[in-house]
Design a protein around this nucleic acid. Structure first.
Length: 194
DNA sequence: AGAGCGATGGCCT
DNA sequence: GGCCATCGCTCTA
């Protein structure tokens, strides 16, 4: 059986964690039921990274990024979308990995009810997967090694990983800090990467 | 106290 | 491919 990724997994370099999370399973439990999916696309946000929410220092919104590793950083953006990150590095170092797409495994019907759609549209984007799995700001800071929102892994062995540039940012556009599983149909966008 | 804007997605063309 | 809804957070005054 897969076990929750241990705390020390998230202490590694953020670029390494971003790649290592590919193929791991994001698992979520609510009173409605369980949903889960394999992580197929990630982005790294690092210290000194102009595109990071932590670039201008600590605020109430981004405080979780400065917290201990292996916890969630969930933020709300564009007035309607939540995005989910796994916090990396030691406490005080504000780095994180944005989860951008999942390949659904459990609870597809529940995801469909939450999303009002099905198929690829369930989880092929950062705002979509949070809606499908009922992840919002109440989970900001949640421990990802136990509880109702856990990352297990790895779900499968080594696969081909594509390196690309990140999506939807205006600063540090050229940094190759997006990673996804080659050929996976759940990846949100395939262009980019220079 | 208020303006500006964003790690997006849905819908239209 | 383009438009734009929608609102919390940040910055400036």
């Amino acid at each position: 059986m897969m076990k929750p990724l241990p705390r020390h997994f998230y202490l590694a370099e953020t670029l390494t964690v971003a790649r290592s999370l590919l193929g791991c399973l994001l698992w979520r439990r609510t009173p409605e039921g369980v949903t889960s999916g394999i992580i197929v696309e990630t982005e790294a946000y690092c210290q000194g990274d102009a595109a990071s929410h932590a670039a201008r220092g600590r605020t109430p919104r981004n405080a979780s990024m400065f917290g201990p590793p292996g916890h969630a950083y969930v933020y709300f953006t564009y007035g309607m979308h939540h995005c989910f990150n796994a916090v990396t590095r030691a406490e005080g170092v504000a780095e994180a990995v944005l989860i951008r797409a999942l390949e659904p495994v459990e609870g597809l019907e529940l995801m469909g009810r939450r999303r009002g759609t099905d198929g690829r549209q369930l989880t092929n984007g950062p705002g979509r997967l949070t809606q499908a799995m009922a992840i919002d700001r109440t989970l900001d800071g949640a421990d990802l090694t136990e509880g109702d929102l856990v990352i297990h892994g790895p779900a499968a062995g080594a696969r081909d990983i594509v390196t690309a540039t990140r999506v939807g940012i205006t600063r540090a556009r050229d940094e190759p800090w997006r990673f996804y599983l080659a050929g996976n149909r759940w990846v949100s966008k395939r262009q980019g990467g220079g």
